[in-house]
Design a protein around this nucleic acid. Structure first.
Lengths: 424, 424
DNA sequence: ACAGTTTCCCGTAAATGC
DNA sequence: TGCATTTACGGGAAACTG
């Protein structure tokens, strides 16, 4: 009878942060005969929830009743929009919390109920409806976890209100899930993921099984348990990249210049035999929210050598936009004149042709002063005898550069006949 | 009878931000005979204030009564500490605000009152005391203005509670004020201002009058009206520098390596005839919170040439610590090999000797990757025919570099016999 | 329109709870 | 003790309000 619209967080509906205002709207889908009737709607948080089912309890701090109004535009049905609603946690309900135990806060589902009661021709009618399940968080740091829950719920069930969903969450087919992931990128970053990118993501979840379209992913593997050897889950990693794109890489991402999700093996296979200075852009797999470029060079005897720069994270990109980094990046090898090793964006687009329009450093003419910019550089010390400038000597990495290159080259293999990695 | 301690903002007492917790303590200085008596203290904000005198009204949101307790340490006198007090503005008192009109919010003085009542041997005794005048702000952006008021009040009056002080604020002698300013730097940055620095500041306020020790500064000139030609007042400017030091320059400032407050004329006079590559550090006078270095070079015919880099502000210094900027700064002149023009800190300290201990870039060995750092560079285009890399052409400055240098050289003059600018 | 002021709320840090 | 979660609040920006 009513169609409840959802409370919203910046672009992430169904997640409410305590102490932060949200908005929700209810629309009456039947037309009432008498319009001069004051139809009051009351909204309640977690109305008649079986106690003990949910570990935290919240209430609406602000005014929670409002009179319905004829909708401004069009069909003249009744609706009411609650604004400036705010949630606060009830503390110490009865001694300790009705701790369900296993669920994390972002798996705990809540709901917003709406009630109205009116009389028509002697008949008293009670209306009641409620929202889709909601996640309540207390800090934006919980937003990725909360959004994972919202995605999983809405991907895997049509039930309007199964608050126990995460007590035993179903698995997702990779074919479904990959579509949702791509949709995340198109919604929040303006461009979705192509087949190759999704395949790389699938391999990250399932290992090197070539075709993983009928594999299933558990909720835990998707967002709760850490990727083996990493201190974060798959979704936390992917979401950190989404955030990085949103804040620092939007134009570059939308121009389709970021291959992004490529395994290191694939990367080498692609760059091998390309023009020296050919590079591609990919996200860090070892750290949250990082992007790096890898370029290929050839030694005198023709061996391919692959170099990846230390990934740039949001802090670095705040100091210097990514396109400018690509333009200005320099490598200094033992005091030789610095040179930018980045020449062609894979497969063979001249760098300035690709990124020219995205460069944006202005030689800031604050006149009496000499303008100054930051330049990203890498200092390659080829003979280990050179000591660092003056400060502390850094400890040796587990392998020497030579050892690592040998190992890397041994791991490298070739994959024939790839489509353009930037295909739709 | 009581000695009220003050509510505190981070290191800035007497300023309270609405919605942010503060703490205050009251101590009973007389010893009471009966200790088993529950002595309740009540704190009230702006108790019995003549209405209309103050445009904004606030109240204490949290619990405002507490029982006195014997102080833990030492002399066993009674005291009470109110914690987690929080202020909120009363809205719409009676229609409109009792707008005094002329005063800004940071000039509006308030006070906290403390009351207690107890009976001893049939005698009822009322105790009451109150805090020094307080400034209430709603955003940290008002903190500098608020602190200016606190300084001015405490510098210029001994009255414990003259809330109308800023209705007609007295002037300050430069001798008093300069002491307070130096004290700000020693309190918040660990090192005060020396005579030369204070003289430069005095000249900034009074013009080029050599000895300004008996000049007077008005409150308006100190913190309300803008410096001629600048969009900020003297105190806003000085405070922005204090903040810059606190966050980004603490070790360099404390090593006394920042001359800081030097006029451009003085700067040239000092650097002239010094070893090429001699530089000094000074704060920007044209922008808030900026620091620059100026170095001297000589052309083939022996003319001194002074260069100042575009001032570094907190954003840039967040990306790269200042000592590292000094270490790594490079100038590229038309494709020539980049060189660091900074050699000697004025008067003649080799750069690395001065700053060596303060360098702190670690060649971050995230192994599979090539480490990368940011380098501050200036690109000098000596012949105007060279076009900028690829992006938009910037409009011409009002003067060409040549014209500016001529003008600057004409303005330059020499001052004999200076002490070390870094003297205590 | 606009400036002074407040509110909003992200994102980091610290505190708290379990 | 460590991890999960909440609280605190600086700081930038939007909203408010005369």
């Amino acid at each position: 009878e009513k169609q409840p619209c959802m409370p919203t967080h910046p672009q992430k509906p169904l997640i409410i942060k305590t102490g932060v205002q949200f908005t929700t709207k209810v629309r009456l889908l039947v037309k009432l005969p008498e319009v001069d009737y004051q139809l009051k709607v009351k909204t309640t948080f977690d109305k008649d929830l079986p106690p003990g089912r949910v570990s935290r309890q919240f209430f609406i701090l602000t005014n929670n009743t409002k009179v319905m109004d004829i909708e401004d535009y069009s069909n003249g049905c009744l609706s009411v929009e609650f604004r400036h609603l705010q949630l606060k946690e009830k503390k110490y309900i009865n001694g300790t919390k009705g701790n369900e135990g296993l669920l994390s806060v972002t798996e705990e589902l809540h709901s917003l109920s709406f009630e109205a009661c009116f009389t028509v021709q002697g008949l008293t009618i009670d209306l009641e409806t409620c929202s889709l399940p909601l996640v309540v968080i207390s800090n934006v740091s919980q937003l990725p976890g909360g959004w994972a829950s919202v995605m999983w719920y809405n991907l895997l069930t049509d039930e309007p209100r199964n608050l126990a969903f995460f007590g035993n969450p179903p698995r997702a087919n990779w074919s479904q899930l990959s579509e949702v992931l791509s949709w995340q990128f198109s919604t929040f970053a303006g461009r979705g993921l192509n087949k190759e990118q999704l395949t790389t993501l699938g391999e990250k979840l399932f290992g090197q099984h070539a075709s993983c379209s009928d594999y299933q992913v558990s909720w835990s593997k998707f967002s709760k348990e850490n990727i083996p050897g990493k201190p974060f889950s798959f979704w936390m990693w992917l979401d950190s990249i989404l955030e990085l794109i949103k804040k620092h890489l939007l134009p570059v991402w939308n121009e389709n210049y970021i291959m992004g999700f490529v395994s290191k093996e694939m990367e080498r296979a692609l760059l091998k035999d390309r023009e020296p200075g050919t590079f591609l852009l990919r996200f860090s797999e070892s750290h949250l929210g990082g992007i790096t470029f890898t370029w290929v060079e050839y030694s005198e005897n023709g061996d391919a050598k692959f170099n990846s720069v230390e990934p740039y994270t949001k802090n670095r990109l705040t100091a210097l936009p990514f396109a400018d980094i690509i333009r200005d990046y320099k490598v200094i090898s033992d005091g030789v004149v610095p040179e930018n090793p980045l020449k062609f964006l894979y497969p063979n687009i001249p760098k300035d042709e690709a990124f020219g329009r995205l460069y944006n450093s202005q030689p800031s003419k604050v006149y009496p002063y000499i303008p100054s910019t930051l330049i990203p550089i890498s200092e390659l010390r080829q003979n280990a005898s050179t000591t660092p400038p003056s400060s502390c000597q850094s400890p040796q990495p587990p392998m020497t550069p030579g050892e690592f290159d040998m190992l890397s080259d041994a791991l490298c293999f070739d994959i024939g006949g790839m489509n353009s990695p930037y295909s739709e």
